Amino acid sequence: MTGRWLYRTLVALAAAWLAFVVAQLVLSGQWWLWLVPDIVPPLVFTAVPVVLAAGAAAVPRSRRPVALLCLAALLLGYSLSGWNAGALWTSPEPAPAGALRVFSWNTEYWDSDGGPFYPFLQARQADVYLLQEYLNDGDIPTPVHDLDRLQAAFPGYHIAIAGELVTVSRLPILRAYPLPADVPITDTGWVAEFVRDKVLRTDLDLGGGRALSVYNLHLPVQVSPGLSVFGGAFWRTVRDQHAQREPQWRALASDVDANRNPILVAGDFNTSPAMGDLRKVPARLHDAGALLPSLYPASWRDRDGLPRWWRLDWAYTTADVRVHSYEFGRTDGQSDHSFQLLRLSVP
């Protein structure tokens, strides 16, 4: 009786997991409600079928059906899992003289933790800084007025600011503007700017009549962890955040499709490898992630008891931009996000 119960339980669990993987592939990025299942760590899409298959090995009768179900789930779910097999064989080209160092980082409310914030930024010795969350911590977003310190820390650099986004560039900025996103806004003043401006485009002068378009991006987070899932406010927030995210994806796709310059898009996407929203990245863009040295690159958390299991920070380029190195780096507790550091050139 116990053996039959175990057999039925294992088969049911394996079938349920396969159904969840299929639903993730079909519904993620399509239905606002699926933003909640989207928060699962991508690692589970390989871990769960392996654990279930290992458990079935102890129950002979269940081995074959569970193995088949788990194999199907593993094959379908691998693309969602965040594993970076390219790290095993991708060999970056050596960076030529003059290659750009680009640093992208969600600062987690700017200089709010009292750490060595500006020395930390200066130590990266980047040519271009793409910084997010240029605002104060609090229930209501409020702007930071730190331009004087920023200019003093980076003399000779050029600065563009839109809402919570700051781009600091050693190269001259030919033009800068936030992408026009059709976001529903009920606020006014700077809060409206904060809600609306989530992608800042800057065209950087490479000389010789060439320009590199750099998109500094921070998409809204999809859930509010401070709200109970049993309350209506949680689900209203999920729906509202979906309504904030979708116009940003459309604005990015529209601008990238019309832009003939070499392009880099980098920042905090608040989007994991498991989320169907990544299918909304414009087709011209290519993930630089194969150059990450880690087999399982992750850029977010290990605070509040949460392990670093999510990659939420991304860098994409067009084919005419060569990426010579790409890494995530820890920030000595100054942020819950790793920073991204790239070396790239435009032939």
Score class of each variant (00 low, 15 high):
Pro172Gln: 08
Ala253Val: 06
Arg250Asp: 06
Trp314Pro: 00
Asp139Lys: 15
Leu171Gly: 05
Ala315Arg: 02
Arg239Trp: 12
Leu219Gln: 00
Arg201Leu: 14
Ala53Phe: 07
Ala73Pro: 05
Met275Phe: 11
Thr318Gln: 10
Thr271Phe: 06
Val256Lys: 02
Ser169Trp: 01
Ala56Gly: 08
Ala72Ser: 08
Asn270Phe: 05
Leu292Ile: 15
Leu121Tyr: 00
Arg4Leu: 10
Leu219Thr: 03
Pro180Thr: 03
Arg210Gly: 06
Gly98Lys: 13
Ser272Val: 05
Trp32Tyr: 11
Arg343Pro: 01
Gln122Thr: 12
Ala233Glu: 15
Leu204Met: 10
Glu193Gly: 09
Lys280Asp: 06
Arg175Asp: 09
Phe328Lys: 03
Cys70Tyr: 00
Asp146Thr: 11
Leu165Asn: 00
Leu165Ser: 01
Gly77Phe: 01
Ala99Asp: 09
Ala153Gly: 05
His158Gln: 13
Arg301Ile: 09
Gln222Val: 10
Tyr296Lys: 05
Arg330Trp: 13
Ser62Thr: 07
Trp17Glu: 00
Gly329Arg: 11
Leu252Cys: 03
Leu306Gln: 15
Leu165Gln: 02
Leu75Asn: 14
Asp287Glu: 12
Asn106Leu: 07
Val223Ile: 15
Ile140Ser: 11
Ser345Asn: 11
Asp197Ser: 04
Gly208Ala: 05
Leu130Lys: 00
Ala251Glu: 00
Gly55Val: 04
Val168Asp: 00
Ala14Trp: 02
Asp139Met: 14
Pro49Ala: 07
His145Tyr: 13
Asn261Trp: 05
Leu52Phe: 09
Thr9Arg: 14
Asp187Arg: 15
Asp302Asn: 15
Ala315Leu: 09
Trp300Asp: 01
Leu150Ile: 12
Gly156Met: 11
Ala54Val: 12
Leu18Tyr: 01
Gln244Leu: 12
Pro220Gly: 12
Leu121Thr: 02
Val36Arg: 07
Arg196His: 10
Asp182Gly: 07
Thr9Trp: 13
Leu130Trp: 00
Leu68Pro: 05
Leu80Ser: 05
Ser299Lys: 06
Arg175Ile: 06
Arg239Ser: 08
Arg284Tyr: 13
Val323Thr: 07
Gly98Cys: 08
Ser254Gly: 11
Leu150His: 02
Thr167Gly: 02
Ala253Ile: 06
Arg4Ile: 10
Ala123Asn: 12
Leu217Met: 14
Trp105Thr: 02
Gly276Ile: 03
Gly82Asn: 03
Ala123Lys: 14
Ser335Gly: 04
Leu25Tyr: 08
Ala87Thr: 13
Leu212Asn: 02
Gln132Lys: 04
Pro94Tyr: 03
Val256Tyr: 02
Val59Pro: 00
Leu71Glu: 04
Ala19Cys: 12
Pro41Cys: 03
Gln151Pro: 02
Gly114Met: 13
